[in-house]
């Protein structure tokens, strides 16, 4: 301990000072903890995503086979793939719910407009990660979903064709499309989101959370409670509950694998993921 202390000049009091942001009482109400949920799920996505990337091979000839290997052969591969998929689903839902609570409580008003915009960018990035992630599986719907998505971007005036070419790495879906989508999915979007989340949280700490007084609370009650250990423990428990929920969903409804992509025939039923 002393050895570490000498090299990292931080003591318990300073740590407490740094982490002990007083948390407004209303955060004891669960719907205000919705902001912490996407953050936790983001970490789950990073961890499971890195695990999947150990076996995933981004090229049209190998992608589907490698996802099949993850699903059928690798030990617990089905579990990590399913948690990654359910993590994405819950994350998109949590971001939208978080945004709805901010909207309906008017917490986006001055001086928090910038954070509202950052939140919007985070939603866009999350949807982008969901879209590119699903493309990686290279099953029929991945392929046609990507193709249709690229053509929708192409219909944007002026920049559309440029966007489509950037997305596909060519005029149409080709050999170099999957590696590109993989880099966007596994490196660029996570890095951008990490930056946005950092600024998002920094702004929250600078401005404080919008405080609310609820009718059923005595007015003289202290308005805040300490971040540590109270709120920290809440977040730990939320994390545990989410992990158990993800594992249950992954076991009951594991991620499936449709037929291999066929660029020569469009499936009869083609619908995007629920969030689009």
């Amino acid at each position: 301990m002393a050895w570490l202390r000498e090299r990292i000049p931080l003591d318990g009091d300073q740590l407490r000072e740094m982490s002990n942001e007083p948390v407004p009482n209303h955060l004891k109400r669960w719907w205000f903890a919705l902001g912490g949920t996407p953050a936790y799920l983001f970490i789950v996505q990073i961890v499971t995503g890195i695990l999947l990337a150990f076996y995933y091979e981004p090229s049209p000839r190998t992608a589907y086979g490698s996802v099949k290997y993850i699903t059928d052969t690798a030990a617990y591969g089905w579990y990590f793939r399913s948690v990654h998929k359910w993590g994405a689903t819950l994350m998109i839902a949590a971001v939208i719910l978080h945004q709805m609570r901010v909207f309906f409580t008017g917490a986006y008003r001055k001086p928090r407009e910038i954070n509202w915009l950052i939140g919007m960018c985070l939603l866009a990035c999350t949807l982008g990660a969901g879209f590119t992630g699903y493309s990686l599986v290279y099953e029929q719907l991945s392929y046609w979903g990507t193709t249709v998505g690229a053509n929708i971007s192409a219909s944007v005036p002026v920049v559309g064709p440029f966007m489509k070419a950037m997305m596909l790495g060519g005029d149409t879906y080709n050999e170099r499309t999957l590696p590109r989508l993989f880099m966007v999915h596994a490196a660029i979007l996570p890095a951008v989101m990490l930056g946005l989340i950092t600024v998002h949280i920094a702004l929250i700490r600078l401005q404080g959370v919008t405080e609310f007084q609820f009718k059923d609370e005595p007015a003289d009650k202290p308005k805040t409670f300490p971040f540590f250990p109270d709120h920290f423990y809440t977040e730990l428990s939320v994390g545990l509950v989410l992990m158990v929920l993800l594992s249950a969903l992954a076991t009951i409804l594991p991620a499936t694998l449709g037929p291999h992509a066929d660029p020569l025939s469009t499936p009869e039923v083609i619908k995007p993921e629920w969030f689009f």
């Binding site: 961890v47 695990l51 150990f54 052969t73 690798a74 030990a75 617990y76 591969g77 579990y79 990590f80």
Partner: peptide, 9 residues
């Protein structure tokens, strides 16, 4: 589980 997943099958 992650350890088992990463160890060659």
């Amino acid at each position: 589980m992650a350890g088992r997943f990463l160890y060659p099958a």
